[in-house]
Amino acid sequence: MFTHGIGKRSAKVKNTVERGAVKKFAESIGDLHPIFVCEETGKQSRYHQNIAPPTFPRVFDYGTIEELKLPNKGLIHGEQIYHYERPLLVGEDILCYSEVKDYYERNGKSGEMGFLLLNRFGEDLEGRLIFTEEQVVIITEAVRREMRV
């Protein structure tokens, strides 16, 4: 039911790695380490700047894929993979977008399950890739039945 979305992409959205957002995020995962939040530590570090925690890209806006209408309830997050070319630097602007990589259905314990593979990307303003994210979202039969109605 999502197969028509395969290969579709969102338009790129400019995001900023905001200092305040990084601090709030680091605090929420119990990781207020100076490399994330202390300006002096950032300057002295090999990155010459504070960096963001690796799961920080959760906060970014990746734009909308028109063909992909997901329910906001009943989705199961199955897998999450990050790949980094380098860490995200506090204060930098990045362009983010998402893509439907694949969709397939399999029979499982609780009926036919849908597997949606979403990719997300973050690039610098020159178009160089900084990170990619792969997400597997599991959509149960009950949710899909509801969506058809």
Partner: peptide
């Protein structure tokens, strides 16, 4: 939980950065 787990590595970012982080829930 995935965000929390990453903090095992935070003290070492002067010698390495996290290139891949793959999790199954």
């Amino acid at each position: 939980t995935m965000g929390n787990l990453a903090k095992l590595f935070t003290p070492y970012y002067e010698e390495a950065f996290m290139e891949n982080y793959a999790i199954r829930f």
